[in-house]
Nucleic acid binder design. Sequence first.
DNA 1: GGCTATCTACTACATCTGTCATAGTGTCAA
DNA 2: TTGACACTATGACAGATGTAGTAGATAGCC
Lengths: 105, 105
Amino acid sequence: MSKQKLSKLEYGVMEALWAKREASIREVQDFFPEKKRPAYTTVQTTLYRLEAKGSVKRLRKVGNFHIFAATVTRSAAQTTLIDDLLSMFGGKTQPVMAHFIQSGS
Amino acid sequence: MSKQKLSKLEYGVMEALWAKREASIREVQDFFPEKKRPAYTTVQTTLYRLEAKGSVKRLRKVGNFHIFAATVTRSAAQTTLIDDLLSMFGGKTQPVMAHFIQSGS
DNA sequence: GGCTATCTACTACATCTGTCATAGTGTCAA
DNA sequence: TTGACACTATGACAGATGTAGTAGATAGCC
């Protein structure tokens, strides 16, 4: 399904794919800022899970490794996340707007 | 800590406390719309967990049962949730605003 | 005083997520 | 051709969350 809600780490992994169009596991890992870079196998597991959820696909195998790409757009993923939050607020955008205004954003 | 992020069910439980100021487990349960009303013990477990997190406290015991109340305001809880989402977007409100505009809210 | 309804306290369990370790496989340079 | 190194596949585990059953305490009614 396309309406998969992404977790924080999953979203971070997707960021790499959205930015680079396609990438190997290693490239995705390197995309994380050094300070918060997960282990190679953590990224691997996350990509596998995203693949199982249908948010990512393996494009091809290059030499010894796979190339992954996102199957959902960034804005679609963001929309799912935002709608999920709004559902907690009864669908009202008001609390969010109020927060933006109050925090001066 | 005050910055506890609430899960969906936890937030739903808090809604009852925010609305009624204080409530027993049964009252919280009854606050849920019938269609999505969790079992009594599910509400109980959630209240206990919220208590452990410090988001809820037991005010007193009335007869045989406890009365609970929120220790955080609704807007504080919302802020935590919104900030958590924004952190995924690199702190940018733009994706959220764009979504609001696009969906005509 | 005893029965019944209701509460509390405790336990359990599946799924999701973050986090990796390990073992096995494939590739490429020497 | 073979050894080193990177990559893959798989297994594991803990914490959070949703969900609820069960046993034992309690309180009020008859």
